[in-house]
Each structure stands twice: as C-alpha cells, then as structure tokens.
Amino acid sequence: MYAYQGPQAYARISLESRVAGATPHQLIAMLFEGACGAIAHARIAFAQGNVARRGEMISKAINIVDNGLRAALDHQKGPTIAADLERLYDYISRLLMQANLHSSLDKLAQAEMLLRDLAEVWQAIAPHKQAGQP
C-alpha cells in the first residue's frame, strides 16, 4: 500500500522544514549552499566521465544563481551593491556555461570559488553575528 520512498523523501522533508522556518538571510545562505553542492556533484560527474550528470548539475547551479540569487537582489534598497552582484552572478553563470561547454574543470573551480567566497561573506554579515551572537 505504501511505496518505499527512501532517503530522498526524508531529505526533501528536511529541506522543506528548513525553508519553512528560515529567515530571508538564511534562505540566501541555502541558495549558496545549493549552488555549491550542485557544483560539487558536477565535479564528481567530471571525474566519472558522466557528461549527462555533469550537465544536469551545472544547469542546476546556473538555475540557482540566475533564478535564486540574482532574482533576490533588491535594486531599490541597495542599487550599487545589487548592480555589482548582478554583474558577478552573470559572470559566474557564464563561467558555469563555459565549464560545461568546454569541459573545463578550471572554470568550474573558479565559479565554485567565487560562490564560496560570497557565501562566506554572506555568513559573516548574518544578523545574529552583527548582534554579537555566535
């Protein structure tokens, strides 16, 4: 009667719970986490020679950057920083596309490094850190 759904079902429920209780700042952190995770999976696919999986994971990372991180930019509240981040996200998306198109681990690594640096800065400016909390 009940079909086994396995670990994926638990992971999905866990993610849904995290998203439901997250602050806007935490949601952006989750987007960085998701993009970096997709790139890590693409790197594994590179090593395994799995071109289809590599493309799927790079596409997922591009989608998160373009439809998550870029879409969340508030050009009204911070036009200068939003414009700078818009250009950086566009550059990261292009790096990811080139990494897939040209089978370039270097471009994939560069995109990942930029996203990890941004994620680190994002964590450093977390509201609870500004209030002096751990």
Rank of each mutant, 00 (worst) to 15 (best):
E120I: 03
F46I: 00
L15P: 00
R18K: 13
V51P: 01
A35K: 11
Q133R: 15
G34H: 13
L69Y: 13
R94T: 12
A82S: 13
S104G: 05
A3I: 15
G132M: 08
I28S: 09
R116M: 03
P24N: 06
Q48S: 06
K60D: 14
S103Q: 15
M1C: 05
C36N: 05
M1R: 07
M57F: 15
Q130E: 10
A29M: 07
W122G: 03
R116D: 02
M1Q: 09
L108N: 07
W122D: 02
L114F: 13
M30E: 08
F46T: 03
K129L: 06
F32C: 05
A11P: 01
L115V: 06
T23H: 07
M113Q: 13
R43A: 10
Q98H: 14
V65N: 10
R87P: 02
R54N: 02
L69N: 10
A9P: 02
M57N: 14
T80E: 14
P7T: 14
H102D: 01
A45T: 06
A9W: 03
A29Y: 09
L108Y: 07
L108K: 05
D90S: 12
A131M: 09
H75Q: 09
A20R: 15
S104Q: 04
M30S: 03
E16A: 06
P24H: 12
Y4W: 03
T23A: 04
N100E: 11
N67P: 01
I64D: 00
H25R: 00
R53C: 01
A29S: 09
N100A: 05
A72V: 02
A38D: 15
D90T: 07
L73F: 12
G78V: 01
Y10P: 00
Q130C: 00
A29L: 10
R18M: 09
A111Y: 04
M113E: 10
P7L: 12
L108R: 05
A83M: 04
Q8C: 02
N100H: 15
A119D: 01
L27D: 12
E56N: 06
S59W: 14
R54M: 01
Y89F: 09
A111R: 07
R54D: 00
E112Y: 05
G49R: 00
V19A: 06
P7M: 14
Q98M: 05
A9M: 10
I13H: 13
R87A: 05
A61D: 08
Q5P: 03
D74A: 04
L118Q: 08
S17H: 08
A119N: 10
G37S: 11
A42L: 10
Y2V: 15
I62R: 15
L96T: 04
